[in-house]
Design a protein around this nucleic acid. Structure first.
Length: 463
RNA sequence: UCCCCUGUAGCUCAAUGGUAGAGCGAGCGGCUGUUAACCGCUAGGUUGCUGGUUCGAGUCCAGCCGGGGGAGCCA
């Protein structure tokens, strides 16, 4: 008999059916009348299935009464209407098979709340908790929604390389990839001889698939990447990981407003899907984690995002009467406190900032006719901050080369990137969404380490 | 990397420089179609590590290690 998920067994229409349930005991309660209640969770949903085990079962005294939180079982029996409160159905056990015990003296997870910090030390067990089960289900839902969004619009899913030799964008510190013996590095005239390395040159883990995505966008139209991304920055914050997942669509013949339109539709669709498909989990996040998440998602779906040129944002901040730790000045990047003021206080909803000063943005962003700004856009949301960064790309060869020189990059190193402009160049645009930041925003989980199964941060890679 | 906070029982936290405690969890017993169950009893500690000050250090000082919050970097 195939197993029935708890999510199914809890439905009233299952009453009367012979059923096999397999999962992990959350708690056991004994009745003096000679039977026990088991709460079984199998991860298919937030809720447990209540199992009634009568004392007449042959292994009742020897096994069932020794079951504790964490034990794994198969229970076979019939679904009955539940006379108690809290559930429509329950399973009347005919057999209970114990697969694995979990000694309560040494099993770390207790029948009580644990702090997220403590649970991070038990990353191998935390998926067995309500919160991390819910995070895993919502994460899965968001990923499915992302693929669906692009697939329905005819975007091609492109796999860009994880190992790269281009120190692209200068976007922060990169992880080295090497097969050289670090105890005995080959040297040529004092410096490391990378011709002896696996790829005959220094190579790294990718910090972005954008440049490669542009190759495919300028051949096939609309594409997206969705994969792991690595930053070797020594960042210790609730919003940074050394390994995270990023979604990067890249669209030919898109200009910045098209890009903003797509980003907004994209975020709205994810929120809609989560509300529709993860109702129970979202209710949990609302009740136990952050009681604003449901209202926030509703509001995202219903309201237009604010769109605001950087220059106007600077003006709003300067006129705000707020005292900021860092002064606001045109030409310097906005600080976290500035972004937070705009999105959490002034507008109280997502804000798309665009047309940033040329000097603070990377070479590939298209220069505006004013010469001093570029067609960049950042989507800022309350609490999490920057969730999307994107731009219309510079498609004019001469301008792109000029921008590289401006930023001390050697155009020769990017010969293939420049070829895209040299041959059949088109206006195009794209953006990057940080999956974990999106999940933080949706679930209200305060720390990014709690929305990825196995967080990688400086000094931490245990599991 | 910088600034601030923090490290005591399995977990969450108390303890004026003077004999280390509580709640929860666990074990045992009681009660109960129960559901964050409830009541009673019991066990459980090298106070992160190293050094220093002191008659005496969980407490004060220094260094190191871990955790958290904020900043920078960004998604």
């Amino acid at each position: 008999m195939p197993r029935t998920p708890v999510s199914e067994a809890r439905k009233p229409e299952r009453i009367g059916q012979q059923t096999l349930i397999q999962g992990w005991v959350r708690t056991r309660r004994d009745s003096k009348a000679g039977f026990s209640f088991l709460e079984i969770n199998d991860g298919s949903c937030m809720a447990n299935l209540q199992v009634i085990v009568d004392g007449s079962l042959p292994n009742y005294e020897t096994e069932v009464k020794r079951l504790t939180a964490g034990c794994s079982v198969s229970v076979h029996g019939q679904i009955k209407p539940s006379s108690g409160k809290g559930q429509a159905t329950e399973l009347l056990a005919e057999t209970v098979q114990v697969h694995g015990w979990a000694d309560p003296e040494s099993y770390p997870l207790q029948k009580k709340r644990h702090s997220f910090e403590k649970l991070r030390e038990w990353a191998h067990l935390r998926p067995r908790t309500n919160t991390f089960g819910a995070v895993a289900r919502v994460r899965n839902c968001v990923c499915q929604s992302i693929h669906q969004f692009f697939q329905q619009r005819g975007f091609l899913y492109i796999h860009t390389p994880i190992i790269t030799a281009s120190d692209c964008e200068g976007a922060g510190e990169m992880f080295r990839v090497t097969t050289l013996d670090l105890e005995n590095v080959p040297r040529q005239q004092g410096t490391v001889d990378y011709s002896m390395d696996f790829f005959d040159r220094p190579s790294y883990l990718t910090v972005s698939g954008q440049l490669e995505a542009e190759i495919f966008a300028t051949a096939l139209g609309n594409v997206y990447t969705f994969g792991p991304t690595f930053r070797a920055e020594n960042s210790n914050t609730s919003r940074h990981l050394a390994e995270f997942w990023m979604i990067e669509p890249e669209m030919a013949f898109y200009e910045l407003t098209d890009n903003m339109d797509l980003a907004e539709q994209f975020l709205k669709q994810i929120c809609r899907d989560v509300l529709e498909r993860c109702g129970e989990d979202m209710q949990f996040f609302h009740d136990r984690i952050d009681n604003t998440v449901l209202a926030t998602l509703d509001s995202i779906v219903q309201h237009q995002f604010i769109r605001l040129p950087y220059t106007d944002a600077v003006e709003i901040l300067q006129r705000s009467g707020q005292t900021f730790e860092f002064p606001v000045a045109w030409g310097s990047d906005l600080q976290s406190e500035h972004e937070r003021y705009l999105t959490e206080q002034h507008f109280q909803r997502p804000v798309v900032l665009y047309d940033y000063p040329r000097v603070i943005k990377p070479f590939y962003m298209r220069v505006n006719d004013d010469g001093r700004t570029v067609r960049a856009m950042d989507v800022l949301v309350p609490k999490v901050g920057e969730i999307i960064g994107g731009s219309q790309r510079e498609e004019r060869l001469e301008m792109l080369e000029q921008r590289m020189v401006e930023q001390d990059l050697r155009p020769d190193d990017y010969w293939w990137y420049l070829d895209l402009r040299r041959f059949g160049t088109v206006p195009h645009a794209g953006f990057g969404l940080g999956l974990e930041r999106m999940l933080q925003f949706i679930t209200g989980m305060a720390n990014i380490r709690d929305v990825i199964p196995f967080p990688r941060t400086p000094g931490s890679a245990e599991f």
